[in-house]
């Protein structure tokens, strides 16, 4: 199961098995979407499968995740989603209204994100062979002009930006499962980040080195991947990282680190220092970007590592997530 949780085990699976056998020996740094050449036109393509329990939760549902997730993977690779194809795996006996609600949610999310759903496929498996429904979306996108995402272009002194508060989605799901007897007024942050990405590119395009939406494994995992890919240190300022009090509270209670919690509507960017102010201004003025922050800086040391520093001079290493985040009690 850990291989699907987005952290270290996932990366090992991809780098150890999928990449060498499917893409040849040296795939280079792994991004959220691939850019391919079709008759001289560069397009971005990506795919993502969605399995979530429960199917609906405060702030969203699997249908919205399936659209926004793929739109966002394209967005942070520097592309605007043009069309999605969707495939469903349905468990026999799934109630029709449940399916209909999810299809409607997808249609609405696609309209909101300005992307077409162009084709689809459905498979039904025996009762008990799947958990209600799984959705896979594959997206194709047009490259946005004026930006080039490459972790190897990241330099010492670059600023690390975060589009808004982290941890909302993961904690919402954890609580929505109802296993913890904890309640909080919290909603998933699922949304298309494309408008924010476009605002950022417009204001700071030439300064953008890297972007990523920190979904499973959280911001810590995305930044650890970047640190490894560019061989530099990511130094974060703890007091600058936006986290809602409800998320902080839940994390304190459960012994979790907000940096390891999944997000579905935020993204990280690394921007060269001279563009940092313009980038933050543009994000802050864009709808849904008012809480964007510079949360850290790229440093030479500790190479290949994410370090969090506190106002009082303490610091700690934040590693990739190993497996799923589990609540700690004793």
């Amino acid at each position: 199961m850990a291989h699907g949780a987005g952290g270290k085990a996932s990366r090992k699976l991809v780098e150890g098995l999928f990449a060498p056998l499917l893409f040849g020996a040296t795939p280079g740094p792994l991004g959220d979407a691939a850019h391919v050449d079709i008759n001289g036109t560069r397009v971005a393509i990506t795919t993502d499968s969605f399995v979530v329990k429960p199917l609906t939760f405060p702030g969203g549902s699997i249908g919205e995740l399936a659209v926004n997730g793929t739109v966002n993977d394209l967005a942070v690779s520097g592309a605007r989603a043009e069309a999605l194809v969707v495939s469903y795996v349905l468990e026999a006996g799934l109630a029709t209204p449940v399916l209909e609600a999810e299809v409607r949610a997808m249609a609405k999310a696609a309209r909101d994100a300005g992307v077409r759903i162009a084709a689809g496929d459905t498979k039904v498996v025996e009762h008990g062979k799947a958990d209600q429904m799984y959705v896979t979306t594959t997206g194709i996108g047009r490259l946005l002009p004026g930006v080039k995402i490459d972790p190897r272009s990241v330099r010492v002194g670059d600023r690390i930006l975060l589009s808004g508060p982290i941890g909302d989605h993961g904690i919402t799901i954890l609580l929505a499962r109802g296993e913890l007897d904890l309640e909080a007024d919290l909603r998933s942050d699922t949304r298309s980040v494309l408008p924010l990405v476009e605002a950022l590119i417009h204001a700071a395009g030439p300064g953008i080195r890297w972007m990523r939406d920190p979904t499973r494994g959280g911001a810590a995992t995305s930044l650890n991947e970047l640190a490894r890919d560019c061989g530099l240190g990511m130094v974060l300022f703890e007091d600058q990282i936006p986290v809602r009090d409800t998320v902080r509270g839940a994390c304190e209670l459960l012994g979790l680190d907000p940096l390891h919690i999944a997000n579905e509507g935020q993204f990280l960017a690394v921007v060269s220092p001279e563009y940092a102010d313009a980038a933050i201004n543009a994000l802050s003025l864009a709808p849904g970007g008012s809480e964007a922050q510079v949360i850290g800086e790229v440093c030479e040391q500790p190479a290949g590592t994410v370090l969090v520093t506190t106002l009082y001079g303490g610091s700690r290493i934040v590693d990739m997530l190993v497996g799923d985040p589990l609540p700690r009690i004793c």
Binding site: Q301, P302, A303, T305, L307, R316, I317, V318, D319
Partner: peptide
């Protein structure tokens, strides 16, 4: 988790 690579700093 938190410490050992700091030695390299």
């Amino acid at each position: 988790n938190y410490e050992h690579r700091k030695a390299a700093m």
